[in-house]
């Protein structure tokens, strides 16, 4: 299932990514462009999520593991229960490769992500970093470990997601060199094991794919 990738194919893929990114940017509305250009102020958020000791455990606990590109942010819903308001977007990704689970390349899957605060005028405010991770941006290539969204969740979303992120340890950017990189904050300060996502950073996509396929088949 894993695709062999050479440096020349990586370059071709990168060119395709850039082209796709330009096309995607050209397709989104003005509000979405504004979000992409709002790279300034951020706010850090600590969020509860399930931790895993190994890639195998994380893969087994996921319904779907894919390599894909963020196609767009579809409208989701607003959180407004307290002193600040924020926007949960539905991140839609088009699958390039299925590492594990029931889907095909070309399929679109999606997950909710609290992307940014909303200013009083309703415009996007500070970008929210969840455990250090920026909202996956349109055009971005990533590997993500997903679970099917339970029927009682995100019922109010304008575009209801198909899945949710199984764990923030399982969200990786894919670099142009074909290695995965986690943006997770490392709180270990040199003591104890870093979080799983950080430990997997630097793994080549082919190796990650092989290990995930092995775990899913076990």
């Amino acid at each position: 299932m894993a695709q062999k990738r050479t440096s020349s194919s990586s370059r071709r893929l990168f060119v395709l990514m850039v082209t796709a990114g330009i096309l995607v940017a050209g397709c989104v509305g003005a509000g979405e462009r504004a979000r992409l250009e709002d790279g300034g102020e951020v706010i850090e958020r600590t969020s509860e999520y399930e931790r895993f000791e190994s890639l195998e455990e994380m893969a087994v606990a996921s319904d779907l593991v894919v390599l894909g590109h963020v196609q767009r942010w579809a409208p989701g819903r607003t959180l407004s229960g307290g002193e600040t308001r924020s926007e949960v977007v539905t991140v839609q990704i088009i699958i390039d490769q299925v590492l594990a689970g029931d889907a095909r390349p070309g399929d679109v899957v999606s997950f909710p992500w609290e992307a940014h605060e909303l200013r009083p005028d309703g415009e996007p405010g500070r970008t929210i970093l969840v455990e250090g991770i920026r909202p996956p941006a349109p055009g971005q290539e990533l590997v993500v470990f997903l679970r099917e969204l339970p029927p009682d969740q995100e019922r109010d979303a304008v575009v209801r997601p198909t899945h949710y992120v199984a764990t923030f340890d399982g969200v990786f950017t894919v670099t142009e060199n074909g290695v995965v990189r986690s943006e997770l904050q490392d709180f270990s300060e040199g003591e104890g094991l870093p979080r799983l996502g950080i430990r997997l950073t630097g793994l080549r996509i082919e190796e990650l794919s092989r290990q995930v396929a092995q775990a899913a088949g076990s």
């Binding site: 850090e44 958020r45 969020s47 959180l79 909710p112 609290e114």
Partner: peptide
């Protein structure tokens, strides 16, 4: 601490944010 409750997106759980570092 300012606290409140909300229907957070999955993965479900609480969240804590430093508003004034």
């Amino acid at each position: 601490i300012s606290w409140w409750a909300d229907d957070l997106p999955a993965p479900k759980g609480g969240k804590t944010t430093c508003e004034r570092p």
